[in-house]
Amino acid sequence: MIPPEGATSEDVKTVTERAPAKERPVRVNVQGLEKTYRAGEEDVRALGGLDLTVRDREFFCLLGPSGCGKSTFLRVLSGLLEKDAGRIAVEEPEANRPTSSMVFQEKGIFPWKTVIENVAFGLKMRDVPVARRREVAQRYIEKVNLEGFEDAYPHQLSGGMKQRVDIARAFANDPEVLLMDEPFGDLDAQTKRQLQEELVTLWQERPKTVIYVTHDIEEAVRLGDRLGVMTDRPGRIAELVDIDLARPRTRDNLDLSRMEALQNRVWSILEGVTQSPHE
């Protein structure tokens, strides 16, 4: 077991005794979110009144047709983009922890920094002392199984290993909310499955509120506590689905027929929101 971190809000003990989702406090509350890109002549309305509530330590998956505004939503949530209208309330963390950290689909880590420098980057930006940030970074490098690669540069790593670095950096930041934008979208099926398992293990050890964007219905159902399907652009939440599959969702523990039923349900919701059939 890992010693609990001083800076961590999470008490390791509470992991096992997860309160029912509906009773946990709200961490992210979004109301009527609007975002329009002004690109030259044409305006692109990416988000059209999006409402969403995500609770503490909930693993929330977001699905939707391509171009419906999923990445836009994460960028607005993270503060990288300004919203046009609406309300975003994210629980403010206590001292020296960020509100959110993003894991990118690709090219999220810096080619000119070693693995450990990449993982420690957020801590460095928050002026955590060198010794402390190396220690924290090292711990998360081990957690994502990259021991021995601390001083490697990203170009020496495979795609899956690079995503592990990005994930380690996000967890090392210890944010209130973890935002993930198709983090495994570019990986082959086998690597993807392996990283999914590692992610869930890490998340159960260091529980966080997660908003996870994906195109992959199976992935959403396998990972999430709950999922939301977005409408076509301008995006809003079309429908929410509870994923009532017991954890751990290992092969022998997984209710495959229930999983298939859920996937079918999501599939038909997605078909409903995708208006233009030629897309």
Binding site: P98, F104, K107, F110, W112, M125, N173
Partner: peptide
């Protein structure tokens, strides 16, 4: 890459950090 700028800002980089940690090494 835009994603490198975004990653830096998401991790709390300020204006000067952005130049020192991303733009300078990226253009060296």
């Amino acid at each position: 890459e835009d994603s490198h700028i975004e990653a830096a800002m998401d991790n709390g980089a300020g204006r000067i950090d952005l130049y020192r940690e991303v733009i300078l090494p990226g253009t060296l």
